[in-house]
Write a protein that binds this DNA or RNA. Sequence first.
DNA 1: TTATGATACTTGTATATACAAGTGATATTT
DNA 2: AAATATCACTTGTATATACAAGTATCATAA
Lengths: 140, 140
Amino acid sequence: MDKSQFCKCLYYSTNALSRNLNKIAEEEFSVTGLAPTYGFILMTVNKNPGIPAGEIANIMQLDPSTVTRLVDKLDSGKYVKRTREGKFVFVYPTSKSIKLNNKIIASWKSLYKRYTDLIGIEKSRKLTGKVYEAVLSMNK
Amino acid sequence: MDKSQFCKCLYYSTNALSRNLNKIAEEEFSVTGLAPTYGFILMTVNKNPGIPAGEIANIMQLDPSTVTRLVDKLDSGKYVKRTREGKFVFVYPTSKSIKLNNKIIASWKSLYKRYTDLIGIEKSRKLTGKVYEAVLSMNK
DNA sequence: TTATGATACTTGTATATACAAGTGATATTT
DNA sequence: AAATATCACTTGTATATACAAGTATCATAA
């Protein structure tokens, strides 16, 4: 059985890596009570209070409709506040999210430790650089 | 606005790459009438008639329950047949899937061309190797 | 040989995500 | 100034995917 007929396919390999990383990310973020993506959004909002929703979509490279959904949940959980001004929606942190920030960042660091322990610190660093470079070259 | 506070995070970057690749994969596979994952499964089944469902899960690195769902759909669309023998489920191609195989492989090649055009052929090759290496080191 | 445990799969359920189409606000053109 | 286009977001809908728990089969040990 040829287990690796797809190993030369970037799409296939990247998806597999993504699923593996997602699994450990969920584990590490579980102490925050949030899935990793929500943690990333909260970090972004905490760092940039009043950020427009569309900017979150840009940074996270998610569809605007997806961001609406995610921020909806954060809002209903009192993790953020929103104000609509004209066609823009600005997203603000709450005391809840500010209090949670350290825990989120700690989870993020644990995630980093988890995968660097598995992959190797130098390899991880290089790989991340190459992956991000690829992302940029696909966004033009 | 710091757009790249996450660019050093493998989880974040890999997810972004995965979404980008998924988008073009869906475009290229659209001529087959199937989403890319189904195409990959059909290629696997066409190459290994009678493959056990669990082996598909191994190769594709998907949860067995996910494979059940995907193969359910392929079965109801007459793309595969299944036989249960004891605790195993063996998956077989049909004439429909065999006829479709060339188209699937063509889509797969178009996908390859798409991302190598964007990322660069040599960079893609190296990146794929590193990504797959990372996958392996996370599966131990 | 029966009991226990492991294996292979399925089902129930939850969720992140995207796309298409909609709404309302702003900008641009005529 | 009115018409049109663009922008920012939301809503409706679909789907891939995972986890937990279930079922049935097989293997191992008592």
